[in-house]
Design a protein around this nucleic acid. Sequence first.
RNA 1: GCCCUCAUCGUCUAGUGGUCUAGGACAUCAGCCUUUCAAGCUGGAGAUCAGGGGUUCGAAUCCCCUUGGGGGCACCA
Length: 491
Amino acid sequence: MTKGWQEFYKGIHHKKESGQQKMPEKIRTRFAPSPTGFLHIGGARTALFNWLYARHNDGQFILRIEDTDQVRSTAESTGAILNALLWLGLNWDEGPFFQTERGEIYREAVERFVDEGKAYYCICTPEELEEKRKRALAERRKPRYDGTCRERDLARTAGSAVRFRCPQAGITIVNDLIRGPISFNNEELDDLVIERCDGWPTYNFAVVVDDVQMDITHVIRGDDHLSNTPRQILLYEAMGAAVPQFAHVPMILGADKARLSKRHGATSVTAYREMGYLPEALVNYLVRLGWSHGDQEIFSKEELIHLFTLEAVGKSAAVFNPEKLLWLNQRYIKTYPEERLVDTMKPFWEMRGLDTSDREFTGKIVADLRGRVKTLTEMADAGEFYFNDAIVYDSDAAEKFLKPEFTGHLRAVMEKVPLLQDYTKNGIEGFLRELAEERGVKLKSIAQPLRVALTGKTVSPGIDEVMITLGKERVVKRLKRALEHIESQNL
RNA sequence: GCCCUCAUCGUCUAGUGGUCUAGGACAUCAGCCUUUCAAGCUGGAGAUCAGGGGUUCGAAUCCCCUUGGGGGCACCA
Protein backbone atom coordinates (compact mmCIF):
# COMPACT_ATOMS: atom_id res chain seq x y z
CA MET A 1 0.00 0.00 0.00
CA THR A 2 1.38 3.36 -0.98
CA LYS A 3 2.02 5.58 2.00
CA GLY A 4 1.27 8.72 0.02
CA TRP A 5 -2.39 7.91 -0.38
CA GLN A 6 -2.86 7.14 3.23
CA GLU A 7 -1.26 10.30 4.47
CA PHE A 8 -3.18 12.39 1.98
CA TYR A 9 -6.58 11.05 2.86
CA LYS A 10 -6.02 10.88 6.56
CA GLY A 11 -6.10 14.65 6.59
CA ILE A 12 -9.67 14.76 5.38
CA HIS A 13 -12.00 14.85 8.29
CA HIS A 14 -15.50 15.96 8.96
CA LYS A 15 -15.49 19.36 10.57
CA LYS A 16 -17.09 19.36 13.99
CA GLU A 17 -20.00 21.77 14.20
CA SER A 18 -19.27 22.67 17.76
CA GLY A 19 -17.31 21.36 20.67
CA GLN A 20 -20.19 19.66 22.45
CA GLN A 21 -19.29 16.81 24.76
CA LYS A 22 -20.44 13.44 23.56
CA MET A 23 -21.49 10.61 25.73
CA PRO A 24 -19.61 7.34 25.35
CA GLU A 25 -22.60 5.71 23.67
CA LYS A 26 -22.20 8.03 20.75
CA ILE A 27 -23.13 6.32 17.55
CA ARG A 28 -20.25 5.16 15.39
CA THR A 29 -20.70 3.61 11.98
CA ARG A 30 -18.15 2.54 9.44
CA PHE A 31 -17.68 1.74 5.82
CA ALA A 32 -15.15 -0.99 5.20
CA PRO A 33 -14.53 -1.65 1.52
CA SER A 34 -11.90 -3.98 0.21
CA PRO A 35 -9.71 -2.25 -2.36
CA THR A 36 -10.08 -4.79 -5.11
CA GLY A 37 -11.76 -2.51 -7.63
CA PHE A 38 -13.58 0.78 -7.98
CA LEU A 39 -16.37 1.88 -5.66
CA HIS A 40 -19.43 -0.04 -6.70
CA ILE A 41 -22.91 1.50 -6.78
CA GLY A 42 -23.98 -0.90 -4.05
CA GLY A 43 -20.98 -0.07 -1.92
CA ALA A 44 -21.69 3.60 -2.41
CA ARG A 45 -25.21 3.18 -1.09
CA THR A 46 -23.95 1.24 1.90
CA ALA A 47 -21.45 4.00 2.59
CA LEU A 48 -24.21 6.57 2.17
CA PHE A 49 -26.51 4.84 4.65
CA ASN A 50 -23.70 4.59 7.17
CA TRP A 51 -22.79 8.20 6.66
CA LEU A 52 -26.39 9.38 6.93
CA TYR A 53 -27.02 7.33 10.02
CA ALA A 54 -23.94 8.77 11.71
CA ARG A 55 -24.75 12.33 10.68
CA HIS A 56 -28.41 12.02 11.64
CA ASN A 57 -27.46 10.88 15.11
CA ASP A 58 -24.61 13.28 15.45
CA GLY A 59 -22.30 10.32 15.56
CA GLN A 60 -19.14 9.42 13.73
CA PHE A 61 -18.41 7.77 10.45
CA ILE A 62 -15.23 5.73 10.21
CA LEU A 63 -13.49 4.53 7.11
CA ARG A 64 -11.53 1.31 7.08
CA ILE A 65 -9.82 -0.35 4.17
CA GLU A 66 -9.97 -4.14 4.31
CA ASP A 67 -6.88 -5.00 2.36
CA THR A 68 -5.77 -8.25 3.92
CA ASP A 69 -6.19 -10.00 0.60
CA GLN A 70 -2.72 -9.14 -0.59
CA VAL A 71 -3.29 -10.66 -3.99
CA ARG A 72 -6.34 -8.69 -5.02
CA SER A 73 -5.87 -5.42 -3.15
CA THR A 74 -4.30 -2.50 -4.99
CA ALA A 75 -3.35 1.03 -4.11
CA GLU A 76 -5.12 2.26 -7.24
CA SER A 77 -8.38 0.81 -5.98
CA THR A 78 -7.92 2.46 -2.63
CA GLY A 79 -7.36 5.80 -4.29
CA ALA A 80 -10.34 5.35 -6.57
CA ILE A 81 -12.62 4.42 -3.69
CA LEU A 82 -11.57 7.31 -1.51
CA ASN A 83 -11.93 9.76 -4.36
CA ALA A 84 -15.37 8.44 -5.19
CA LEU A 85 -16.49 8.80 -1.57
CA LEU A 86 -15.25 12.36 -1.41
CA TRP A 87 -16.86 13.17 -4.71
CA LEU A 88 -20.17 11.95 -3.30
CA GLY A 89 -19.59 14.14 -0.28
CA LEU A 90 -19.28 11.25 2.16
CA ASN A 91 -16.56 12.53 4.42
CA TRP A 92 -15.26 10.44 7.28
CA ASP A 93 -14.35 11.37 10.81
CA GLU A 94 -11.66 8.79 11.40
CA GLY A 95 -9.42 6.81 9.12
CA PRO A 96 -8.87 5.53 6.66
CA PHE A 97 -7.48 2.69 8.68
CA PHE A 98 -5.70 -0.04 6.77
CA GLN A 99 -5.91 -3.57 8.02
CA THR A 100 -2.48 -4.34 6.63
CA GLU A 101 -1.12 -1.82 9.12
CA ARG A 102 -2.82 -3.58 11.98
CA GLY A 103 -1.30 -7.04 11.71
CA GLU A 104 -0.01 -6.92 15.26
CA ILE A 105 -3.47 -6.32 16.67
CA TYR A 106 -4.94 -9.36 14.93
CA ARG A 107 -1.99 -11.59 15.81
CA GLU A 108 -2.37 -10.72 19.46
CA ALA A 109 -6.07 -11.40 19.35
CA VAL A 110 -5.49 -14.75 17.71
CA GLU A 111 -2.85 -15.64 20.25
CA ARG A 112 -5.22 -14.84 23.07
CA PHE A 113 -7.88 -17.04 21.50
CA VAL A 114 -5.44 -19.92 21.26
CA ASP A 115 -4.22 -19.43 24.82
CA GLU A 116 -7.75 -19.43 26.11
CA GLY A 117 -8.60 -22.53 24.14
CA LYS A 118 -11.07 -20.66 21.96
CA ALA A 119 -9.08 -21.42 18.86
CA TYR A 120 -6.72 -24.12 17.68
CA TYR A 121 -4.10 -24.79 15.04
CA CYS A 122 -5.14 -26.65 11.96
CA ILE A 123 -2.88 -28.32 9.45
CA CYS A 124 -5.47 -29.46 6.95
CA THR A 125 -4.32 -28.42 3.49
CA PRO A 126 -6.50 -26.34 1.21
CA GLU A 127 -6.50 -29.24 -1.22
CA GLU A 128 -7.91 -31.66 1.33
CA LEU A 129 -10.49 -29.12 2.40
CA GLU A 130 -11.53 -28.43 -1.15
CA GLU A 131 -11.97 -32.10 -1.80
CA LYS A 132 -14.12 -32.58 1.27
CA ARG A 133 -16.16 -29.58 0.32
CA LYS A 134 -16.85 -30.97 -3.12
CA ARG A 135 -17.75 -34.31 -1.70
CA ALA A 136 -20.20 -32.76 0.74
CA LEU A 137 -21.86 -30.81 -2.05
CA ALA A 138 -22.08 -33.95 -4.16
CA GLU A 139 -23.69 -35.79 -1.26
CA ARG A 140 -26.12 -32.89 -0.86
CA ARG A 141 -24.80 -31.91 2.51
CA LYS A 142 -23.95 -28.45 3.65
CA PRO A 143 -20.18 -28.20 3.34
CA ARG A 144 -18.59 -27.49 6.68
CA TYR A 145 -15.26 -28.15 8.33
CA ASP A 146 -15.27 -31.65 9.81
CA GLY A 147 -13.17 -30.79 12.84
CA THR A 148 -10.21 -32.96 11.93
CA CYS A 149 -7.78 -30.84 13.94
CA ARG A 150 -10.20 -29.61 16.55
CA GLU A 151 -9.07 -31.93 19.32
CA ARG A 152 -5.54 -32.65 18.15
CA ASP A 153 -4.01 -29.92 20.26
CA LEU A 154 -1.48 -29.03 17.58
CA ALA A 155 1.21 -26.41 17.88
CA ARG A 156 1.95 -23.67 15.38
CA THR A 157 3.90 -25.00 12.42
CA ALA A 158 4.99 -23.65 9.08
CA GLY A 159 1.78 -24.11 7.10
CA SER A 160 -0.72 -24.07 9.95
CA ALA A 161 -3.82 -21.96 10.12
CA VAL A 162 -5.87 -21.07 13.18
CA ARG A 163 -9.50 -22.02 13.58
CA PHE A 164 -12.12 -20.70 15.93
CA ARG A 165 -13.65 -23.34 18.17
CA CYS A 166 -17.26 -22.69 17.35
CA PRO A 167 -20.06 -23.75 19.70
CA GLN A 168 -21.66 -26.78 18.10
CA ALA A 169 -25.06 -26.50 19.67
CA GLY A 170 -27.52 -23.83 20.59
CA ILE A 171 -28.83 -20.97 18.54
CA THR A 172 -27.54 -17.53 17.74
CA ILE A 173 -29.96 -14.71 17.17
CA VAL A 174 -29.19 -11.70 15.04
CA ASN A 175 -31.38 -8.81 16.07
CA ASP A 176 -31.37 -6.99 12.82
CA LEU A 177 -32.58 -3.40 12.88
CA ILE A 178 -34.15 -3.77 9.46
CA ARG A 179 -35.34 -7.36 9.48
CA GLY A 180 -35.99 -8.08 13.11
CA PRO A 181 -34.72 -11.15 14.94
CA ILE A 182 -33.22 -13.87 12.78
CA SER A 183 -32.18 -17.10 14.37
CA PHE A 184 -29.47 -19.47 13.26
CA ASN A 185 -28.72 -22.94 14.45
CA ASN A 186 -25.14 -23.14 15.62
CA GLU A 187 -24.95 -26.59 14.06
CA GLU A 188 -24.96 -24.81 10.74
CA LEU A 189 -21.76 -23.03 11.63
CA ASP A 190 -18.34 -24.61 11.51
CA ASP A 191 -14.90 -23.86 12.86
CA LEU A 192 -13.91 -21.01 10.63
CA VAL A 193 -10.31 -20.10 9.94
CA ILE A 194 -9.42 -16.88 11.71
CA GLU A 195 -5.77 -16.74 10.76
CA ARG A 196 -4.56 -17.90 7.41
CA CYS A 197 -1.32 -19.77 6.96
CA ASP A 198 0.23 -16.54 5.69
CA GLY A 199 -0.32 -15.04 9.13
CA TRP A 200 -3.05 -12.61 8.10
CA PRO A 201 -6.49 -12.73 9.67
CA THR A 202 -9.50 -13.74 7.61
CA TYR A 203 -12.33 -11.34 6.98
CA ASN A 204 -14.73 -12.55 9.66
CA PHE A 205 -12.12 -12.27 12.35
CA ALA A 206 -10.59 -8.99 11.27
CA VAL A 207 -13.95 -7.20 11.06
CA VAL A 208 -14.87 -8.24 14.53
CA VAL A 209 -11.51 -7.30 16.03
CA ASP A 210 -11.64 -3.94 14.26
CA ASP A 211 -15.24 -3.17 15.03
CA VAL A 212 -14.63 -3.91 18.68
CA GLN A 213 -11.46 -1.89 18.83
CA MET A 214 -12.95 1.01 16.89
CA ASP A 215 -16.05 1.08 19.08
CA ILE A 216 -18.40 0.60 16.20
CA THR A 217 -21.95 0.69 17.55
CA HIS A 218 -23.88 0.06 14.33
CA VAL A 219 -22.85 -2.21 11.51
CA ILE A 220 -24.81 -1.25 8.40
CA ARG A 221 -23.93 -3.39 5.41
CA GLY A 222 -25.32 -5.32 2.46
CA ASP A 223 -27.46 -8.32 3.28
CA ASP A 224 -24.96 -10.57 1.56
CA HIS A 225 -23.26 -10.41 4.95
CA LEU A 226 -26.29 -11.59 6.86
CA SER A 227 -25.22 -15.21 6.98
CA ASN A 228 -21.79 -14.20 8.26
CA THR A 229 -23.34 -12.41 11.16
CA PRO A 230 -24.03 -15.30 13.55
CA ARG A 231 -20.43 -16.46 13.46
CA GLN A 232 -19.29 -12.91 14.00
CA ILE A 233 -21.58 -12.63 16.98
CA LEU A 234 -20.00 -15.79 18.35
CA LEU A 235 -16.61 -14.15 17.95
CA TYR A 236 -17.76 -11.03 19.78
CA GLU A 237 -19.00 -13.20 22.59
CA ALA A 238 -15.79 -15.21 22.71
CA MET A 239 -13.95 -11.93 23.00
CA GLY A 240 -16.20 -10.81 25.78
CA ALA A 241 -17.06 -7.73 23.75
CA ALA A 242 -20.36 -5.95 23.31
CA VAL A 243 -22.17 -7.00 20.16
CA PRO A 244 -23.01 -4.00 17.96
CA GLN A 245 -26.38 -3.39 16.36
CA PHE A 246 -26.71 -4.84 12.89
CA ALA A 247 -28.66 -3.49 9.96
CA HIS A 248 -28.56 -5.46 6.73
CA VAL A 249 -29.73 -3.47 3.76
CA PRO A 250 -31.12 -5.28 0.73
CA MET A 251 -29.06 -5.75 -2.37
CA ILE A 252 -29.21 -3.83 -5.60
CA LEU A 253 -30.15 -5.93 -8.60
CA GLY A 254 -29.90 -5.50 -12.35
CA ALA A 255 -32.90 -5.40 -14.69
CA ASP A 256 -32.89 -9.21 -14.84
CA LYS A 257 -33.09 -9.36 -11.04
CA ALA A 258 -29.62 -10.81 -10.83
CA ARG A 259 -27.06 -9.21 -8.60
CA LEU A 260 -25.92 -5.94 -10.17
CA SER A 261 -22.71 -6.44 -12.12
CA LYS A 262 -20.71 -5.06 -15.02
CA ARG A 263 -22.84 -6.79 -17.56
CA HIS A 264 -25.74 -4.56 -16.52
CA GLY A 265 -23.76 -1.53 -17.63
CA ALA A 266 -21.83 1.01 -15.61
CA THR A 267 -21.65 0.05 -11.96
CA SER A 268 -18.88 2.21 -10.61
CA VAL A 269 -19.32 5.62 -9.09
CA THR A 270 -16.37 6.85 -11.10
CA ALA A 271 -18.06 5.79 -14.33
CA TYR A 272 -21.11 7.86 -13.47
CA ARG A 273 -18.93 10.79 -12.68
CA GLU A 274 -17.26 10.49 -16.05
CA MET A 275 -20.58 10.11 -17.81
CA GLY A 276 -21.60 13.49 -16.53
CA TYR A 277 -23.69 12.78 -13.47
CA LEU A 278 -23.82 15.16 -10.55
CA PRO A 279 -22.91 13.66 -7.18
CA GLU A 280 -26.06 15.07 -5.61
CA ALA A 281 -28.18 13.32 -8.22
CA LEU A 282 -26.46 9.99 -7.63
CA VAL A 283 -26.83 10.36 -3.88
CA ASN A 284 -30.50 11.21 -4.26
CA TYR A 285 -31.03 8.22 -6.52
CA LEU A 286 -29.15 5.78 -4.32
CA VAL A 287 -30.85 6.80 -1.13
CA ARG A 288 -34.25 6.12 -2.67
CA LEU A 289 -33.18 2.59 -3.48
CA GLY A 290 -34.47 0.99 -0.34
CA TRP A 291 -35.27 4.07 1.66
CA SER A 292 -38.22 6.38 1.35
CA HIS A 293 -39.99 9.23 3.04
CA GLY A 294 -43.62 9.21 1.97
CA ASP A 295 -44.00 10.40 -1.60
CA GLN A 296 -40.99 12.67 -1.63
CA GLU A 297 -38.50 12.11 -4.42
CA ILE A 298 -36.09 15.01 -4.23
CA PHE A 299 -33.96 15.46 -1.13
CA SER A 300 -31.16 17.83 -0.32
CA LYS A 301 -28.32 16.41 1.69
CA GLU A 302 -29.44 18.39 4.72
CA GLU A 303 -32.92 16.97 4.43
CA LEU A 304 -31.53 13.47 4.17
CA ILE A 305 -29.48 13.90 7.29
CA HIS A 306 -32.53 15.21 9.05
CA LEU A 307 -34.94 12.54 7.82
CA PHE A 308 -32.85 9.40 7.50
CA THR A 309 -33.71 6.53 9.81
CA LEU A 310 -33.14 2.81 9.56
CA GLU A 311 -36.82 2.16 10.26
CA ALA A 312 -37.66 3.63 6.87
CA VAL A 313 -35.31 1.26 5.03
CA GLY A 314 -37.17 -1.46 3.15
CA LYS A 315 -36.46 -5.17 3.22
CA SER A 316 -36.67 -6.17 -0.40
CA ALA A 317 -33.99 -5.96 -3.06
CA ALA A 318 -34.20 -3.09 -5.53
CA VAL A 319 -33.62 -3.08 -9.27
CA PHE A 320 -31.25 -0.41 -10.41
CA ASN A 321 -33.07 1.85 -12.87
CA PRO A 322 -30.69 4.04 -14.90
CA GLU A 323 -33.56 5.99 -16.41
CA LYS A 324 -34.74 7.33 -13.12
CA LEU A 325 -31.21 8.31 -12.23
CA LEU A 326 -31.04 10.12 -15.54
CA TRP A 327 -34.22 12.00 -14.73
CA LEU A 328 -32.83 13.02 -11.35
CA ASN A 329 -29.60 14.14 -12.94
CA GLN A 330 -31.55 16.32 -15.32
CA ARG A 331 -33.45 17.84 -12.41
CA TYR A 332 -30.24 18.56 -10.57
CA ILE A 333 -28.58 20.09 -13.63
CA LYS A 334 -31.56 22.36 -13.96
CA THR A 335 -31.45 23.57 -10.38
CA TYR A 336 -27.73 23.45 -9.59
CA PRO A 337 -26.15 26.70 -8.42
CA GLU A 338 -24.92 28.46 -11.56
CA GLU A 339 -21.34 29.02 -10.45
CA ARG A 340 -20.88 25.44 -9.37
CA LEU A 341 -22.33 24.11 -12.58
CA VAL A 342 -19.94 26.23 -14.64
CA ASP A 343 -17.01 24.94 -12.59
CA THR A 344 -18.17 21.36 -12.93
CA MET A 345 -18.53 21.72 -16.68
CA LYS A 346 -15.05 23.08 -17.26
CA PRO A 347 -13.16 19.78 -17.34
CA PHE A 348 -15.70 18.27 -19.69
CA TRP A 349 -14.96 20.93 -22.29
CA GLU A 350 -11.27 21.02 -21.60
CA MET A 351 -11.15 17.30 -22.19
CA ARG A 352 -12.40 18.11 -25.68
CA GLY A 353 -9.64 20.64 -26.19
CA LEU A 354 -11.94 23.64 -25.88
CA ASP A 355 -10.88 26.93 -24.36
CA THR A 356 -12.92 27.67 -21.24
CA SER A 357 -10.92 30.66 -20.05
CA ASP A 358 -13.74 33.12 -20.79
CA ARG A 359 -15.90 32.44 -17.80
CA GLU A 360 -18.63 34.84 -18.77
CA PHE A 361 -18.94 33.03 -22.07
CA THR A 362 -19.03 29.53 -20.56
CA GLY A 363 -21.51 30.84 -18.03
CA LYS A 364 -23.86 31.88 -20.82
CA ILE A 365 -23.40 28.59 -22.59
CA VAL A 366 -24.31 26.70 -19.46
CA ALA A 367 -27.36 28.89 -18.99
CA ASP A 368 -28.48 28.14 -22.55
CA LEU A 369 -28.06 24.40 -22.19
CA ARG A 370 -28.85 23.43 -18.63
CA GLY A 371 -32.56 23.20 -19.23
CA ARG A 372 -32.29 20.80 -22.12
CA VAL A 373 -29.73 18.14 -21.22
CA LYS A 374 -29.69 15.14 -18.95
CA THR A 375 -25.97 14.79 -18.35
CA LEU A 376 -22.87 16.92 -18.33
CA THR A 377 -21.34 15.03 -21.22
CA GLU A 378 -24.49 15.72 -23.16
CA MET A 379 -24.06 19.38 -22.32
CA ALA A 380 -20.43 19.25 -23.39
CA ASP A 381 -21.41 17.80 -26.75
CA ALA A 382 -24.35 20.11 -27.25
CA GLY A 383 -22.27 23.15 -26.40
CA GLU A 384 -19.24 22.37 -28.46
CA PHE A 385 -20.39 24.55 -31.38
CA TYR A 386 -20.17 27.72 -29.30
CA PHE A 387 -16.42 27.54 -29.07
CA ASN A 388 -15.37 27.51 -32.67
CA ASP A 389 -16.62 29.76 -35.44
CA ALA A 390 -15.38 27.32 -38.06
CA ILE A 391 -18.18 24.93 -37.27
CA VAL A 392 -18.67 21.65 -39.00
CA TYR A 393 -22.11 21.44 -40.55
CA ASP A 394 -24.11 18.34 -39.96
CA SER A 395 -24.53 16.98 -43.47
CA ASP A 396 -28.29 16.43 -43.32
CA ALA A 397 -28.81 19.81 -41.75
CA ALA A 398 -26.70 21.62 -44.34
CA GLU A 399 -28.36 19.80 -47.17
CA LYS A 400 -31.76 20.82 -45.95
CA PHE A 401 -31.18 24.38 -44.82
CA LEU A 402 -27.98 25.75 -46.33
CA LYS A 403 -29.53 26.15 -49.76
CA PRO A 404 -29.80 29.11 -52.15
CA GLU A 405 -33.50 29.56 -51.32
CA PHE A 406 -32.49 30.70 -47.83
CA THR A 407 -29.65 32.93 -48.89
CA GLY A 408 -31.86 36.00 -48.84
CA HIS A 409 -33.04 35.37 -45.28
CA LEU A 410 -29.57 34.72 -43.99
CA ARG A 411 -28.12 37.75 -45.72
CA ALA A 412 -30.87 39.92 -44.27
CA VAL A 413 -30.13 38.69 -40.78
CA MET A 414 -26.41 39.22 -41.29
CA GLU A 415 -26.92 42.76 -42.45
CA LYS A 416 -29.40 43.75 -39.79
CA VAL A 417 -27.87 42.16 -36.71
CA PRO A 418 -25.08 44.77 -36.32
CA LEU A 419 -27.73 47.49 -36.35
CA LEU A 420 -29.99 45.92 -33.72
CA GLN A 421 -30.52 48.20 -30.75
CA ASP A 422 -32.37 45.74 -28.54
CA TYR A 423 -30.08 42.71 -28.62
CA THR A 424 -32.01 40.78 -26.02
CA LYS A 425 -34.17 37.68 -26.07
CA ASN A 426 -37.29 39.73 -26.69
CA GLY A 427 -35.60 42.10 -29.05
CA ILE A 428 -34.18 39.35 -31.20
CA GLU A 429 -37.40 37.43 -31.28
CA GLY A 430 -39.27 40.55 -32.32
CA PHE A 431 -36.69 41.25 -34.98
CA LEU A 432 -36.94 37.75 -36.42
CA ARG A 433 -40.73 37.80 -36.40
CA GLU A 434 -40.78 41.13 -38.16
CA LEU A 435 -38.29 39.92 -40.69
CA ALA A 436 -40.37 36.83 -41.36
CA GLU A 437 -43.42 38.96 -41.90
CA GLU A 438 -41.52 41.34 -44.15
CA ARG A 439 -40.31 38.51 -46.30
CA GLY A 440 -43.67 36.80 -46.26
CA VAL A 441 -42.48 33.56 -44.71
CA LYS A 442 -43.00 31.65 -41.51
CA LEU A 443 -40.57 32.27 -38.70
CA LYS A 444 -39.50 28.68 -39.07
CA SER A 445 -38.05 29.24 -42.53
CA ILE A 446 -35.71 31.81 -41.12
CA ALA A 447 -34.98 30.22 -37.76
CA GLN A 448 -33.92 26.84 -39.05
CA PRO A 449 -31.41 28.01 -41.70
CA LEU A 450 -30.14 30.48 -39.16
CA ARG A 451 -29.77 27.74 -36.58
CA VAL A 452 -27.76 25.60 -38.96
CA ALA A 453 -25.60 28.57 -39.92
CA LEU A 454 -24.82 29.36 -36.28
CA THR A 455 -24.66 25.91 -34.73
CA GLY A 456 -24.15 23.48 -37.60
CA LYS A 457 -27.15 21.48 -36.45
CA THR A 458 -30.93 21.53 -36.60
CA VAL A 459 -31.10 21.02 -32.86
CA SER A 460 -29.85 23.67 -30.49
CA PRO A 461 -30.92 26.00 -27.72
CA GLY A 462 -33.36 28.76 -28.68
CA ILE A 463 -31.97 30.71 -31.60
CA ASP A 464 -32.29 33.99 -29.70
CA GLU A 465 -30.31 32.56 -26.77
CA VAL A 466 -27.64 31.30 -29.11
CA MET A 467 -27.35 34.70 -30.76
CA ILE A 468 -26.98 36.48 -27.45
CA THR A 469 -24.41 34.06 -26.10
CA LEU A 470 -22.43 34.18 -29.32
CA GLY A 471 -22.61 37.96 -29.60
CA LYS A 472 -23.17 39.99 -32.74
CA GLU A 473 -19.63 39.59 -34.02
CA ARG A 474 -19.58 35.82 -33.99
CA VAL A 475 -23.08 35.70 -35.43
CA VAL A 476 -22.08 37.82 -38.39
CA LYS A 477 -18.93 35.83 -38.90
CA ARG A 478 -20.80 32.55 -38.92
CA LEU A 479 -23.48 33.85 -41.24
CA LYS A 480 -20.86 35.03 -43.66
CA ARG A 481 -19.28 31.64 -43.57
CA ALA A 482 -22.62 29.91 -44.13
CA LEU A 483 -23.34 32.08 -47.12
CA GLU A 484 -19.96 31.20 -48.54
CA HIS A 485 -20.73 27.58 -47.95
CA ILE A 486 -23.99 27.83 -49.90
CA GLU A 487 -22.21 29.55 -52.72
CA SER A 488 -19.45 26.99 -52.87
CA GLN A 489 -21.99 24.18 -52.99
CA ASN A 490 -23.88 25.71 -55.89
CA LEU A 491 -21.27 26.87 -58.35
C1' G B 1 -28.41 -29.84 -1.67
C1' C B 2 -28.54 -27.18 3.14
C1' C B 3 -29.23 -22.47 5.85
C1' C B 4 -31.01 -17.39 5.77
C1' U B 5 -34.11 -13.91 3.51
C1' C B 6 -37.60 -11.17 0.40
C1' A B 7 -42.55 -10.69 -2.34
C1' U B 8 -47.83 -3.73 -3.91
C1' C B 9 -48.20 -0.98 -11.42
C1' G B 10 -42.39 -2.66 -16.32
C1' U B 11 -39.08 -0.07 -12.31
C1' C B 12 -38.41 2.73 -7.37
C1' U B 13 -41.92 3.01 -3.72
C1' A B 14 -46.46 4.97 -0.13
C1' G B 15 -49.37 1.92 2.74
C1' U B 16 -48.25 -0.76 9.50
C1' G B 17 -56.72 -4.11 10.33
C1' G B 18 -61.59 -0.35 8.21
C1' U B 19 -60.18 6.68 5.30
C1' C B 20 -57.69 1.53 -0.66
C1' U B 21 -63.10 1.01 -6.12
C1' A B 22 -54.47 0.94 -3.53
C1' G B 23 -51.40 6.97 -3.66
C1' G B 24 -46.70 9.20 -5.72
C1' A B 25 -42.29 9.03 -8.96
C1' C B 26 -39.49 7.12 -13.42
C1' A B 27 -40.59 5.03 -18.03
C1' U B 28 -44.73 4.84 -21.60
C1' C B 29 -49.08 6.93 -24.54
C1' A B 30 -52.18 11.31 -26.08
C1' G B 31 -53.05 16.55 -26.20
C1' C B 32 -51.41 21.66 -25.36
C1' C B 33 -47.26 25.02 -25.95
C1' U B 34 -43.57 25.94 -29.89
C1' U B 35 -38.05 29.09 -33.93
C1' U B 36 -35.47 23.12 -33.63
C1' C B 37 -34.70 19.91 -29.42
C1' A B 38 -35.79 19.53 -24.75
C1' A B 39 -38.41 21.33 -20.72
C1' G B 40 -43.22 22.55 -18.91
C1' C B 41 -48.54 21.83 -18.44
C1' U B 42 -52.97 18.60 -18.89
C1' G B 43 -54.90 13.91 -19.37
C1' G B 44 -54.66 8.35 -20.20
C1' A B 45 -53.22 3.44 -19.74
C1' G B 46 -50.79 0.49 -16.15
C1' A B 47 -51.00 -3.62 -9.52
C1' U B 48 -57.76 -8.91 -8.68
C1' C B 49 -51.45 -5.97 -3.43
C1' A B 50 -47.20 -13.64 -6.20
C1' G B 51 -50.84 -18.05 -5.42
C1' G B 52 -53.62 -20.87 -1.77
C1' G B 53 -55.40 -21.53 3.01
C1' G B 54 -56.62 -19.51 7.71
C1' U B 55 -57.48 -15.45 12.01
C1' U B 56 -61.14 -11.36 12.12
C1' C B 57 -67.46 -8.24 11.69
C1' G B 58 -63.50 -6.53 8.31
C1' A B 59 -56.87 -7.90 5.56
C1' A B 60 -52.19 -5.29 0.84
C1' U B 61 -51.66 -5.00 6.16
C1' C B 62 -51.59 -10.81 11.23
C1' C B 63 -50.46 -16.56 10.88
C1' C B 64 -49.37 -21.05 7.83
C1' C B 65 -48.19 -23.47 3.23
C1' U B 66 -46.75 -23.24 -1.91
C1' U B 67 -44.27 -20.77 -5.75
C1' G B 68 -40.76 -17.41 -7.38
C1' G B 69 -36.47 -14.11 -6.58
C1' G B 70 -32.03 -12.89 -3.83
C1' G B 71 -27.98 -14.09 -0.50
C1' G B 72 -24.69 -17.44 1.95
C1' C B 73 -22.37 -22.30 2.58
C1' A B 74 -13.53 -20.38 1.23
C1' C B 75 -6.92 -20.16 4.52
C1' C B 76 -12.22 -13.61 -0.72
C1' A B 77 -14.10 -9.61 1.42
